[in-house]
Amino acid sequence: MDIVEVRDLTYKYPTSSDQVLRGVSLRVKKGEFCSIIGPNGAGKTTLCNAIRGLVPHFYKGDMQGEVLINGQSTMDVSLADLALSVGFVFQNPFTQISGIAKTVFGELAFGLENLGVEPDEIRRRVSRMLEVAKLQDLAERSPFEISGGQQQRVALASIIIMEPEILVIDEPTSQLDPQSTEEIFEIIQLMKMQGKTIILVEHKIDLVAQYSDHVVLIEDGSIVMDGSTDEILSDPAVLQHGTSLPQFALLGIEMRKRGYRLDKIPITEAQAVEQIGGYFTEKAVD
């Protein structure tokens, strides 16, 4: 059974004039890293809100179809209970700080305190999480007095520490520099290795190519492409939907156009080295 299943979902915000999602269906397997891409305003965040249950519990509005988490409809589970299985991290680091804890340490502990975890266990888990997110040096600082990139790591760590099975992450790096972006992706990668299911919205397509297993392209509230990362991100059709392709895919497509025979279009640096590099060595041998 798929851990997340969206069935023919149509949704309209109370204040939007048009439907924001139209007949969206999506399946995500357990342990899969699924990326959602598409132009601005396509409905990516709204889809995340639906998976997290904020649509329709928090935003109300008209919803048809259903979202199943582990086979159970989000309509039948309270937001607080859903939070235990679906962790949600969003774009703005500032509003993801609880505003209650005095220190970064306390910020990470906050969610566990609310769940009633034993103090010793909390301390153990927070120490481990500080290490994973490389936040040890900031443990005693106020969460408001650190940089945006550090705040985003704190936000991510505060959700991960609660050990949800599914992580929904909406453009976590859009306000961050390349270094901080890298750090966020390292943490996400680690979560994937621990078997978490990850649903990520991200515009940085090269990173999507590098990390995800499954890519979904949304445009105007409908899923227009859905498949494995290799399949979708090597398809020039993506360019027709207001979305870019990885630089290596563009190179590969251009090379094919000019008559170079490539077995497949590369989408990451590693694949490019294999495909194109191989081509040149073969040529050199000829």
Partner: peptide, 25 residues
Amino acid sequence: VGTEERAITLEARAFTANVKKTCLD
């Protein structure tokens, strides 16, 4: 807008969950 997102933040951290909380300090 910030208040709305922060409400979601507190909800995500189980602030209103129906369990007896613990407290480190």
